[in-house]
Write a protein that binds this DNA or RNA. Structure first.
Lengths: 213, 213
DNA sequence: GTCGCACTGCATCCTTCGATGTAGTCGCGA
DNA sequence: TCGCGACTACATCGAAGGATGCAGTGCGAC
């Protein structure tokens, strides 16, 4: 039996959700909350398997409530909203929600979503998935970063200077840090710019940043 | 009618997929490919609505093939694989896949997935969604990044210059881009450095980077 | 109006940067 | 041992960057 806590401020909508949930033999409604704070409090008390969480709620919004519930590992959270605005979606997911569904979803989809989340899996409304994928594909600085093998062509001293550049230091500051004359620092900067095919220390600094130095 | 191109190297599996697809009245199999290169070639020729793409294939793997198909906007891609390894999932999604399904999925789920992708929506296997969400939520480690409100103190022109700095441009290049004298570009650089309490254009460039300009 | 203020623009001057030539050091194979 | 190459180091010089002073413009308050 899957125990669900329903958090939704509009009484009519909440009643409808409860009706839908009760119609399933393997699901029971453990409790109902009318705002975010109540949702968190009831989650602590009732320890449901799943919290069905609306985004727009008074006192404490759904995203913040989700963050709290997830942080305390009280339950898995399935976020429900009317509008698939990016800020809601990404906010909820960052807050740790296990699923994201639109209120326009069919009753059977809702039940299936609850079961999916209860199984420890994730679920996202199809209309939203596309944008999530796009967002995900855009973010990752991790994989397709600049080729670290570029650094292989640099000498040890040049790499050290590159690190300093990444911190935004001037040639004089680099010279102090690495205990060399300013002229020498300049030399190394010049050489590494050439090897990396860059045109200024600014580009070198940004490269160093991306490489995580 | 949804036209599907099946790309899968194992003949038996391919045959099974085709059988399943043919069982749906609103789906037709436009073609079959046994490796990645063939998949791309056939996609160019047949212009299907959806490509059902296996990850592990000879000559050109599914992820690379997906990248190509998406780059040329030939079709939406639904990636299919036996193992839900992270590298496959994230690789496929970064390559631009619209959906990701495991071969263990039921026939009806497969058909529904094809329809979802054909509608321009996205779909991800529930077992995988959780990890995708986790990965997504983990990315913005730089949540407490530099305060964007810093930009409020800048004038419009100064912000434009800051953007250029973020691209590593020189004063001369900035002047050309923004149609002003080099001396003016220098002025704006100098002013924004003062306002942001930075000591060189290098630091300004890195700030611009972090702010995502 | 006109005063003040913020923004934009340019010119001047000094500082910093970056390219280049050269020299000393170390390690390695002939 | 010598020669050779790679690395590190410094000096010099023209180019780019950055600070500062000042002028024109637009806008709201008085």
């Amino acid at each position: 039996m899957i125990r669900v806590l329903v958090a939704e401020d509009q009484a009519a909508v909440r009643a409808a959700l409860v009706l839908i949930l009760r119609s399933a033999p393997d699901i029971e409604v453990a409790g109902e909350a009318a705002d975010g704070e109540q949702a968190v409090a009831l989650a602590r008390e009732l320890r449901p398997d799943v919290v069905l969480m609306d985004v727009q709620m008074p006192r404490l919004d759904g995203v913040s409530a989700t963050r709290q519930v997830v942080a305390e590992q009280l339950a898995d959270v399935l976020v429900l909203t009317t509008f698939d605005l990016d800020e809601f979606v990404f906010g909820a997911l960052r807050a740790g929600a296990s699923g994201f569904l639109l209120k326009s979803a069919e009753a059977k989809d809702l039940l299936e979503a609850v079961r999916t989340v209860a199984r420890g899996e994730g679920l996202i409304a199809p209309a939203v998935t596309r944008r999530l994928i796009a967002e995900f594909a855009a973010k990752p600085v991790s994989a397709p970063g600049p080729d670290p093998s570029l650094l292989d062509t640099l000498t040890r001293r040049e790499r050290e200077v590159l690190c300093c550049l990444g911190e935004g230091l001037s040639n004089a500051e680099i010279a102090v840090r690495l205990e060399m004359a300013e002229a020498t620092a300049k030399t190394h900067v010049s050489r590494l710019l050439g090897k990396l095919e860059l045109r200024s220390r600014v580009q070198a600094a940004m490269l160093a940043q991306e490489l995580g130095l």
